[in-house]
Design a protein around this nucleic acid. Sequence first.
RNA 1: GCCGCAGUGGUGAAAUUGGCAGACACGCAGGAUUUAGGAUCCUGUGCCCGUAAGGGCUUAGAGGUUCAAAUCCUCUCUGCGGCACCA
Length: 1052
Amino acid sequence: MVSVILKPMKRQGARYDHTAIERAWRAVWEKERLDVAAISGVKSAKRSRRKGPFYNLMMFPYPSAEGLHVGNMYAFTGSDIYGRFKRLQGYEVFEPIGLDGFGIHSENYALKIGRHPMDHAEVTEKRFYEQLHTIGAMYDWTRTVETYDPGYYRWTQWLFVQMFKHGLAYRGKAEVNWCPSCKTVLADEQVIDGCCERCGNIVEKRLLDQWFFRITAYAGKLLDNLKKLDWTEKVKVAQQNWIGQKQGIEITYDILTNDGSSAGEVVCFTTTPVNFAATFLVLSPEHPFVSRILQVTDAQRAADIRRYVTKTQQVSREERERQGKKKTGVFSGLYAVNHVTRERLPVWISDFVLTGVGTGAIQACPAHDARDYDFARTFGLPIRSVISFDTEVHIVVLKKFVSSDFSARLQKIAVYGEDRGEEYAVVAPRQMSEKVVRMVRNELTGPHAFAQADGTVAGVITKDGVLSNPDLCAEFFRSHGYGTDLWPVLADRYPFCYIGDGLMRQSGFLNGMPFARAMQKTMDYFEEKGWGKRVTAYHLRDWLISRQRYWGPPIPMIFCKECAAVGRSWFSTHEAKVMNIVSNNDMSGWPASKRLSAAMAGWYPVPERDLPVILPRIGDYRPGDDGVSPLAKHREFYETACPACGAKAVRETDVSDTFLDSSWYFLRYPSVHSGSNVAEVDRKKGVSDAMRGSLVAVHPSNGPAWAGDAGRGTPKKGSPLVGILGGTPVAGPAGTDRRMTVLEQTRRAASLELPWDPAITKTWLPVSLYTGGAEHSVLHLMYSRFVTMALHDWGLLPFDEPFPVFYAHGLIIKDGAKMSKSKGNVVNPDDYIGRYGADALRLYLMFTGPFDQGGDFRDSAMEGMSRWVGRVWRMALSAIEKHSKESGAKVETALQRTIQKVTADIEHRRYNTAIAALMTWTNLVADENGALGLADLSIFLRLLAPFAPFLTEELWHRAGETGPGIVPSASVHRAPWPDYDAAKVVDTSVTVVVQVDGKLRETFSLPSAGAVDRETVLARARKSDRIAHALGEAKEQKIIFIPGKLLNFVTR
RNA sequence: GCCGCAGUGGUGAAAUUGGCAGACACGCAGGAUUUAGGAUCCUGUGCCCGUAAGGGCUUAGAGGUUCAAAUCCUCUCUGCGGCACCA
């Protein structure tokens, strides 16, 4: 790769001048294109010594306020070390970097400091890239990706269009936080205690039309595929929980008015159809059927319902939880009929039933569900138990003896009731584990009894333990005014109990059947009768894509009123094809073909050849006080022509979610130079800048919003529009011709099919190793997987998982807390790189602990690492000076072992112990008075190179200068990774441990051959005074011998 | 509440098919060297008893399995992360 002999630094004397050395090598590496991956040439390289492509990807950063902090550097360095290691092993490694600079995070900061997001992006890009150049990572700087670059987000928009065309993007209602005073939508984090953070008014929930991606269509595959992924386990578990698969049944109920006439149907979802115990139905306040109820119920009740629904809307979900989950609700006046008992079930409305969960409607079985039980108790609804226990013993807890807090904890596992003025709880036998007994005992303020199913007392729990003496127990009951026939009374009169391994009763054909089997049987029965249908439900919700914000890719959709009026949409002409795709991919829960078309009436994607829809530079980019997207105030942006009928139409003015930008970026990196992207190829000539210029020169808004905008290149009021808006370029002022050319180029490129080169993608993807923070366990990693699966199903990608191997790194904290500006504990790596050098900082960060664990940043330890770097420097210089070929035997053998350990440790990202091994070896060299030959120095430098790229490169060249053949390559970073000699790492002598009764009494060193021989070791041990002393008079009963390791005299 | 992960010296940590607990560092103490140093080098450093030799104790706590447990099992406590009125 590096064809010329690199020029080494001038002699510096003994001190390691990290600043000068780092600067010099950065320049040389860039000139020699050391870190530029052979993206296209890798196939031919494959046949030579290189082992093939390795795509080493680190989650790209979103540029924040402070620039890179040391936590970022920790993560990037850990990833880079592995990349460098793989390259030394002979892989062609591609390690790209970019910026996730679009989105709310960057926008908020820009807003805070009063800078236009476009200008802010420019500032942070410069700052981040400067910093990222200094940390010693092997980034391929010829292939960066910035999500706010039109050359990139054109393809983000393209992706949206494909989603739409494949029926995976749709418009639907979503609940958002709405401040009626500010008339704006608020993000969740802008809602403080249910009130608007700006004006203090109570925030309402509103249903607004939003764009969604139908990620739920992939819920099953997202779950199933987890099995085949090599990911940090806890991230997999997090995804599993988030997807939340559960098997259940949807049961359809006929709803009747009081006089028995039909009012419609409601579908309830349940995983546990205890239908003989169902005594009422509950709908969420947002359930569509509520509006039907309002029509058929009497005026007074309708008013009550309206009031209740309005009230629940004013309370945020967080607020609701804070109110202690007290049950509220309102009766609808309507009834359903229980299929199996034929009883009337009153239909209630309550906010404890959530809209997004199941079908937003439940059949309540208060005897067997704590929430239903609460609700039934609150409103005096009937409770019927249909489960009895198949074992004997129960605990009876008199509530007057426990705290109310504890009583609440018991709720899930106990039967509650009231008898003769005493409240009590009965714990089901299944639940009466040791844990419960201990729990009860700890909380106890008085004695508690066991009862048996036949009513006899089994035992009493007291503070001191469990009394099982029946007489004492009977006495306990008598003293509290109860007979010994307590339990059967309780079971019938207060039947709430936990669902365990009970047997069914009062359940017709299910009687006597174990609970779990009864549920399956019920589902069979309901399906047979046509009352219900088994379904697999998921916790996962569809991905809300739209944002009423400015700093993101405009959603590339056009709405035509004329077409909407006649029910025409893009699907009118493409429906058959779409539905074909849908059915081929077995996406359940799809709207019927007619409905898809109707739901999207009037909607058209922007034609691909017209992408990108440029985000115009506007002055009034702040999120509106009037509740609409900033772009919605720009007629010149949204006015366009309908792609189908040519009538006047409007663009979507929402932008897409940041997570869409980052959901596909890994596909772009290897292909940024591919022929499908003119803009990127010309980037170095400044074309990309010109493109950004085109962002600037867009028609100004009317009015004074522009006056205060200090942004670069803000056009004067009234200047003509430049950009591709409405698909028609508009002439710009003088000097904009060139920009037009670029945009034309971009547009032509956009007519190409894909954002990536298929051949390159086939070679380089999926990503070989993805490294990133566990905080992205769910969102980013889930979205990327979804997008990849969709692209795969459309036949555009040959794989369906983007990151077969994902490694979650730990976090660097400072003084025990996460770094954040508000805490004032952000550590800037620049200061430390300036003072100690990038290598010392890299080493320190990696030495602080295991890479998946993170660590606490401490200055003093940093000093220590700096000292070791100095020792290595002097050790190497001294070896180069002496110029001996061979090391001492001890040093050489130890180095062989070090190769073995460092190789294994890096492979498992145990960087801390790899560094410790290198230190141990340098300590040995020092102990041996620097008996280090150049051949071994060359090996050592290669082992250290992934961690300390600058130091090792400098020493590599100084060693190379001393004579031909000293170092095997021009750059240490293109040298072959050293192999160890298996014969040399075998121990010639081992330490054998001698124990007496498992206690260490003596150790001695023996030749390996002797140490594995029982008699030899035993003979040696017999000679030991210490062993004799330890054994004393005792006679050994047994001798344990582990060859090569241990001898244990057992005297017991 | 549910799920997951963790708990080892003054500090970061090492040691996991069960086999010398504390590697490697930081810090601290003492010493050497240097005009000086944010320099370098040497020695010591888990706790307790002891001048020492030596002995005892020790991996959050309790119990268990084993010749042998930081490691395996049971329970408890503490901390961190995710989910949470999920039907």
